[in-house]
């Protein structure tokens, strides 16, 4: 009964130290800065693909935009980079948070409008929008260090910082869980049904990708012949994939379940790297799963917000 009550309380009144959300904001910001910095020259050059390959999605589709010029994209890249710097530092976050989220969302809409929607953009895009629209700079922020001047000026001092943080982390968990749940449901609702768990379709998908890599890229990974010799080895991988994807919503029940799940899903992404050389950098960075861990304790004394390192009851 006590455990059930704890779960119920965690679902209805989630609380967490603002320092955790502050650290997630910082790490998410660093991830975006890293990603944008290394794609800053490649992104504008996508325009050279030619208008015939322009298949607008997201903001580009909603606003029926035609392909922008290289210089406009370059400006957008540096503007977004420029906004994620104060985002990471936690400066003027009331303005910077939403502005950075809008810029990144627009930039990534452009990025994915050239005939291929890469699915590794969806989860970080949602996370950036959620964190950007919540008071995520109550700790680990320059706003705090300089005495809350920006916060006061912009009127962003919400009451109940712990509840704001708890609910924001719950929101992030919900989105993370649903994206993986959908991937799992697509598999069992597809032509294979539950037989997807036998690993045959997984082998087919890996093989299909590898054939193309042999013909159009650096080549298939070294594991391929081994996997075709021992196809049964993929069955545990397929089974584990279904378990972690379909089990994702259970992470909403308690951070402890979330921690177990995070390790499982991270392992799945490592398996994808090993078998297919496909790098889902955001999940592989582990940043989206840190919300299940009391990471604020690592740098507790540096957290400068309310209850930055307070020992709030951690639901189990």
């Amino acid at each position: 009964m006590t455990a059930l009550r704890a779960v119920g309380r965690h679902l209805a009144f989630p609380v967490a130290p603002p320092a955790r959300l502050g650290m997630i904001r910082v790490l998410l910001g660093l991830f975006i800065l890293y990603d944008l910095w290394f794609s800053r020259t490649a992104l504008p050059r996508l325009v050279r693909s030619g208008a015939e390959h322009w298949e607008p999605v997201g903001v580009m589709e909603w606003l029926a935009l035609s392909p922008p010029s290289e210089s406009v994209v370059r400006f957008g890249v540096y503007l977004t980079l420029g906004l994620f710097l104060p985002w990471t530092l936690g400066l003027a976050f009331r303005v910077v948070g939403p502005a950075a989220a809008v810029c990144l969302f627009t930039l990534w809409s452009y990025r994915l409008s050239w005939g291929m929607v890469y699915h590794n953009f969806h989860l970080p895009a949602f996370h950036v929008v959620i964190v950007g629209l919540m008071p995520a700079a109550a700790a680990f922020s320059l706003d705090r260090r300089i005495g809350g001047r920006w916060e006061r000026w912009l009127g962003w001092q919400p009451r109940g910082a712990e509840e704001w943080t708890g609910r924001t982390l719950q929101f992030l968990t919900l989105v993370t869980a649903l994206t993986y749940l959908l991937a799992g449901l697509a598999k069992v609702r597809g032509e294979w049904g539950w037989a997807w768990a036998n690993g045959q379709n997984l082998l087919d998908q890996i093989g299909y990708d590898a054939v193309y890599k042999d013909l159009l890229s650096g080549g298939a990974g070294p594991l391929l012949p081994f996997l075709y010799q021992h196809p049964a080895l993929l069955m545990p991988g397929a089974l584990l994939t279904l378990v972690v994807e379909l089990g994702a919503p259970f992470t909403l029940l308690s951070p402890r379940l979330g921690r177990v799940w995070a390790v499982g899903i991270w392992g799945m992404h490592c398996g994808i790297v090993a078998c297919m050389d496909i790098w889902f950098t955001y999940p592989l960075s582990f940043v989206p799963f840190l919300l299940f861990f009391p990471i604020e304790r690592l740098l507790g004394r540096w957290g400068n917000g309310p209850s930055a390192s307070a020992g709030l009851a951690e639901p189990t």
Partner: peptide
């Protein structure tokens, strides 16, 4: 699509 995808990946 982006940000919502209807694509049945690996399915």
């Amino acid at each position: 699509d982006f940000p919502l995808s209807w694509y049945p990946m690996f399915a």
